[in-house]
Design a protein around this nucleic acid. Structure first.
Lengths: 196, 196
DNA sequence: CTAGGGTGTTACCGGTCTGTAACTTCCAGC
DNA sequence: GCTGGAAGTTACAGACCGGTAACACCCTAG
């Protein structure tokens, strides 16, 4: 019961959702458009009526991923309104939970690993989306009253990014098990050096 | 002027070296055996006389990469004999230098991102080699007299791994610029909590 | 009821992929 | 100089790839 998601909805949405799922599981070059449309319960022609090429479908999937991640951030704000520090800790816990959820790393990072052509349209949106996420984390750290918000945000980013590839290479029992401990420790130690 | 390396040597070595280079630059699924053999100045039949399949060639390339990385560690020992702390700092500097050298991340991590079949032969050796590298870093930290050597080693691992994917997604001007600062800071702070 | 747009179906194009067969050529060691 | 093995050459098999053409269908809005 994998790769299903053929609920009745408009073909475009089904294709997008199925492609996201299959790209995530099998990689981008590991999935052909035929396989996507079949799993989405439709056909190739319909795909090409809604997306001008596989590359555009890839880009649209990445954007959809980022939108979903953005919604997660909004959920933190809803859960701890105004309490930025609590939101930061929620982010750490959520990230750690997703680490162990599936052994595949970040879709954007994986896409960047696969799509090596320097002018591939996906590379631009990956950079754009990653930078937006970084900006959001920096803002959260700063609003949580942390001095050197950029440094903390970048450190947390690298740790999480590293934990994701670690899970992908050595599994969930490797260095990534320490992620929460590292992240929490960092936040505490940065809290010490409060706003200047 | 790329992908050359057609010096006169035995075809097997040329194929291996060329494949390493091309896999690194263009990804594994982004390079066909025809392209490899042509760039290596030989032909497909010769490749298949030395490697039973592309998958075996991939595995052999990964092992060669790991051997090269191992040689780097030996160089640190040769440069700072017995001074494990100096070797650790040398490792940080070397890692940072390689970060900015080329925008492609770790070959093993990239391979893990591309080769999603859970029983792909490469996945096994990736895990094996990554675990060996981790063990070596833990040993280095411990021999440098650092308490919680595993935690420091794992943190440094995740930071470096994350920095490599960061370079690949947002470029060298992103969070990875802070890698040395983070790593050196960590080493110092772990030195504080000396061996228990 | 009808018109029309979204959808499904089938077949196809040209290209690329891994891997193999059959044969020729080269070259080093005897 | 001869021979045997390594290497090169050409052609091909069979599968898959992204993308398109032509046409039949269905279902809803008018």
């Amino acid at each position: 019961m994998t790769d299903g998601i053929v609920e009745r909805s408009r073909p475009r949405d089904r294709i997008l959702e199925t492609a996201r799922d299959m790209f995530h599981k099998h990689g981008i070059k590991g999935v052909g458009v035929d396989a996507i449309t079949e799993a989405a319960g439709t056909n190739k022609m319909t795909l090409y009526r809604h997306f001008e090429s596989k590359d555009e479908l890839i880009v649209e999937c990445l954007r959809a991923n980022a939108a979903k991640a953005g919604a997660m951030w909004d959920a933190f704000e809803a859960e701890f309104p105004g309490d930025k520090l609590a939101q930061l800790h929620a982010w750490v816990r959520k990230a750690a939970a997703m680490l162990n959820a599936d052994g595949r790393g970040c879709d954007m990072a994986n896409a960047a690993a696969e799509l090596t052509e320097p002018d591939h349209p996906a590379r631009l949106v990956i950079k754009e989306l990653k930078e937006a996420q970084r900006a959001r984390l920096v803002t959260l750290c700063r609003d949580a009253g942390i001095g050197q918000a950029e440094l903390l945000a970048d450190t947390l980013s690298l740790l999480l990014e590293g934990a994701r590839v670690s899970v992908q290479t050595v599994g969930t029992e490797g260095p990534s098990t320490q992620f929460v401990r590292m992240a929490e420790g960092l936040i505490v130690s940065f809290r010490g050096t409060a706003a200047v």
